[in-house]
Simulated assay, not measured.
Amino acid sequence: MEHETASSQLEALGNAIRLRIYRMLVRAGGEGMPVGALQERLSMPASTLSHHCKKLLETGLITRERRGTTLICRAHYPAMHALIGYLADKCCADSTTSSTRGEH
């Protein structure tokens, strides 16, 4: 993962509303959640929700699919796993003590 991609994704998730939306979509699993259901659960105007979803879409954290008249949003799990991997990559690699590397 590129440093700029990780930075953009973390910036998007740094907003409390977007983090809440993202966590709801992660919890929804592969089937995702209709935008209308998100709007209802969050009690927010459609335009506000659209603004936040757009940022998550732009960073690759979620996907969106149209089914008839319904928009379905899903967490993009490969992007989530890549971000988590990026954050954990080389954890404690520069540590000089074995206890900080998880060794006992």
Results as ranks from 00 to 15, higher is better:
residue 1 M to H: 08
residue 1 M to F: 08
residue 2 E to L: 13
residue 2 E to Y: 10
residue 3 H to W: 12
residue 4 E to K: 07
residue 4 E to W: 09
residue 5 T to N: 08
residue 6 A to W: 08
residue 6 A to Q: 04
residue 7 S to T: 09
residue 8 S to K: 13
residue 9 Q to N: 06
residue 9 Q to G: 02
residue 10 L to S: 05
residue 11 E to Q: 13
residue 11 E to K: 13
residue 11 E to M: 12
residue 11 E to N: 08
residue 13 L to C: 03
residue 15 N to R: 08
residue 15 N to F: 10
residue 15 N to A: 10
residue 17 I to A: 11
residue 17 I to N: 03
residue 18 R to L: 04
residue 19 L to M: 11
residue 19 L to S: 02
residue 19 L to N: 10
residue 20 R to K: 13
residue 20 R to I: 02
residue 21 I to Q: 02
residue 21 I to H: 01
residue 22 Y to W: 15
residue 22 Y to D: 01
residue 22 Y to R: 01
residue 23 R to L: 14
residue 25 L to A: 04
residue 26 V to E: 14
residue 27 R to K: 10
residue 27 R to S: 07
residue 27 R to P: 00
residue 28 A to I: 03
residue 28 A to K: 06
residue 28 A to Q: 03
residue 29 G to M: 04
residue 31 E to M: 12
residue 31 E to L: 14
residue 31 E to S: 11
residue 31 E to K: 10
residue 32 G to Q: 03
residue 32 G to T: 02
residue 33 M to S: 06
residue 34 P to K: 09
residue 35 V to F: 06
residue 36 G to T: 07
residue 36 G to Y: 10
residue 37 A to H: 05
residue 38 L to Q: 01
residue 38 L to T: 00
residue 38 L to N: 01
residue 39 Q to E: 09
residue 40 E to W: 07
residue 41 R to M: 11
residue 41 R to Q: 13
residue 41 R to E: 12
residue 42 L to C: 01
residue 43 S to R: 14
residue 46 A to N: 04
residue 46 A to L: 11
residue 46 A to C: 00
residue 46 A to Q: 07
residue 47 S to M: 09
residue 47 S to L: 07
residue 48 T to L: 11
residue 48 T to A: 11
residue 49 L to K: 03
residue 49 L to H: 03
residue 50 S to Q: 13
residue 52 H to W: 04
residue 52 H to E: 07
residue 53 C to Y: 09
residue 53 C to N: 10
residue 54 K to I: 05
residue 55 K to R: 14
residue 55 K to N: 04
residue 55 K to I: 08
residue 57 L to W: 03
residue 57 L to A: 08
residue 57 L to N: 06
residue 57 L to Q: 07
residue 58 E to G: 02
residue 59 T to H: 03
residue 60 G to L: 03
residue 64 R to V: 14
residue 64 R to C: 11
residue 65 E to Y: 09
residue 66 R to N: 08
residue 67 R to H: 10
residue 68 G to K: 04
residue 69 T to I: 12
residue 70 T to H: 05
residue 70 T to P: 00
residue 70 T to D: 08
residue 70 T to R: 14
residue 72 I to E: 02
residue 72 I to W: 13
residue 73 C to F: 13
residue 75 A to C: 12
residue 76 H to P: 00
residue 76 H to F: 12
residue 76 H to M: 02
residue 77 Y to C: 00
residue 77 Y to L: 15
residue 77 Y to A: 05
residue 78 P to G: 07
residue 81 H to L: 15
residue 83 L to A: 05
residue 84 I to R: 13
residue 84 I to G: 04
residue 84 I to E: 14
residue 84 I to K: 10
residue 85 G to E: 11
residue 86 Y to H: 13
residue 86 Y to F: 15
residue 88 A to I: 05
residue 88 A to W: 06
residue 89 D to E: 15
residue 89 D to Q: 11
residue 90 K to G: 12
residue 90 K to Q: 13
residue 91 C to E: 12
residue 91 C to F: 15
residue 91 C to Y: 15
residue 92 C to F: 15
residue 92 C to P: 00
residue 93 A to Y: 12
residue 93 A to C: 05
residue 93 A to F: 08
residue 94 D to P: 00
residue 98 S to L: 15
residue 98 S to I: 10
residue 99 S to A: 13
residue 99 S to H: 11
residue 100 T to P: 00
residue 101 R to F: 02
residue 102 G to R: 04
residue 102 G to A: 06
residue 102 G to D: 10
